[in-house]
Write a protein that binds this DNA or RNA. Structure first.
Lengths: 156, 156
DNA sequence: TTAGCTGCAAACGCTTTGCCGTAAC
DNA sequence: GTTACGGCAAAGCGTTTGCAGCTAA
């Protein structure tokens, strides 16, 4: 799960080539920037980091690259899955099912949720107040709508 | 945890009055709209629903009301906590600590995460592909920065 | 009576897109 | 040589804000 810097760059190159993606200096730098930090930066921050070594890079290229890498499963997004804010009439934390295709959100019964213990402190990071759990997948509607295609895609 | 419609409107009124919030028709309708659905709508959808019964309501009032109700702990947001997309060089799902004050995101070791079993299907809702866990709280920096105030706030 | 709230409209900020030149393959 | 990609600038879209009139308490 944790690769060294070099290994991670190597597997990045291998993946790009296997997927037929061009390996451009911009992509290398964007990926490197993300691989060498655990701060989960936003696009602007990645942009500033890359620009230090590549002054001509543009912010929109960083965006395009980030989405492309995510699409390829090379990086991931934190708190993804909706451009719009969604609200819940129930203020008590509870697990949600979220469809990664259409954004549908539903409350779910998920026994394991109630059993896990929430630590009050998380190492030196901070104090924990609430546990937020999302089960991400494909909703029944989307599956039926796209049929076999959805099933094939969901394997990757 | 689940109140009837009437109970939930009653406790809404009681909370508003106790907090010194004015009870306006708009607020009643926004809350009612959220309380009577489990579809976790976005602001636009709430707006359309409210407008059916109150044609003069405006979208910005709906936004202001939603934030106000959230601030009061009367409703909650799904997938909150950041206006900006944040990225993770590690594509494998793993738990995050998220600071609700500054948006900081960190990977955490959270043994309980690895132990819970992810069901392949979620009732009739859909098929599950990944479990996404967030521990929300206040990071060490924010706590130190705001000192006693942070500690008091975090009780609510 | 008087804050606090609403509606309107314009602004804001993150993100996306069209276009064309350029570089990876 | 082809074709995908990058840079630029302008647009897009959800959300926020300033202001003036209104209304709940």
């Amino acid at each position: 799960m944790n690769l060294s810097r070099q290994e991670s760059m190597d597997s990045f190159l291998a993946h790009c080539r296997a997927a037929g993606m061009r390996v451009t200096p911009q992509r290398l730098e964007v990926f490197r920037e993300l691989a060498q930090t655990d701060e989960h930066p936003d696009a602007e921050t990645v942009f500033r980091g890359v620009r230090r070594r590549m002054p001509t890079v543009s912010l929109d290229t960083v965006y395009r690259t980030l989405w492309r890498l995510e699409e390829q499963g090379l990086i991931s997004r934190v708190q993804v899955l909706s451009e719009r804010a969604r609200f819940d009439g129930n203020a008590i934390p509870h697990p949600h099912f979220v469809c990664t295709r259409c954004g549908l959100v539903r409350d779910v019964e998920y026994a394991a949720f109630n059993e896990v213990e929430v630590p009050a402190r998380m190492g030196g990071v901070g104090t924990v107040e609430a546990l937020h759990v999302e089960l991400r997948g494909i909703c029944t509607n989307c599956r039926q709508a796209s049929g076999a295609r959805a099933r094939r895609d969901s394997v990757s």
